[in-house]
């Protein structure tokens, strides 16, 4: 099963490698990993998407908690949560394709953020499925470059992760 794990971690040099090391050393898988400081600059928040059986996920959360710099860990997928990912995608947009490409971006609520004679760069936010769907919907030959941030997540309603 796919799980999305949120981690509050001390914003210290090496914390990221400690966490990613732990995953590789124990053979756990990382589908995506995002990290940035929170409103409190001394702390970072990390979102890791991983796949594993219930037992594996239990071990992952325990092993994360065991790391000295990890402040809190929550498996967001245990309850209602929201997940978002940002994608920037550069596509061919010459005179012929321009209209179509614009329409496509609109359908997916993407925004064109950079334009050149023959390209558009589109910004698209959503869950992973939506970003996948957009890529699928495009003529594969039209895609020049994509970059995705990996998922970030947050609990719904009163469900919060803070210290």
């Amino acid at each position: 099963m796919r799980h999305i794990i949120s981690i509050l971690v001390e914003n210290e040099a090496g914390a990221l490698s400690r966490i990613s090391n732990m995953f590789s050393a124990r053979g756990y898988n990382i589908e995506s990993l995002t990290v940035a400081p929170t409103e409190d600059a001394s702390m970072s928040r990390m979102t890791i998407v991983t796949v594993g059986s219930e037992d594996v996920i239990e071990q992952i959360t325990k092993q994360l908690n065991k790391l000295v710099e990890v402040v809190k860990v929550v498996d967001l997928s245990e309850a209602e949560h929201i997940e978002r990912e940002l994608m920037l995608i550069k596509v061919r947009a010459g005179a012929k394709e321009r209209e179509d490409m614009k329409r496509m971006a609109d359908i997916f609520r993407g925004r064109i953020i950079d334009v050149s004679d023959n390209t558009y760069t589109i910004e698209l936010t959503g869950n992973g499925h939506k970003l996948d769907a957009f890529i699928q919907a495009l003529d594969q030959g039209a895609i020049i470059e994509t970059v995705r941030t990996g998922a970030s997540g947050i609990g719904r309603g009163n469900r919060v992760l803070r210290i």
């Binding site: 037992d55 239990e58 071990q59 325990k62 092993q63 908690n65 065991k66």
Partner: peptide, 8 residues
Amino acid sequence: IDPSSISK
């Protein structure tokens, strides 16, 4: 003392 040793 170590939760990760339990049910491993």
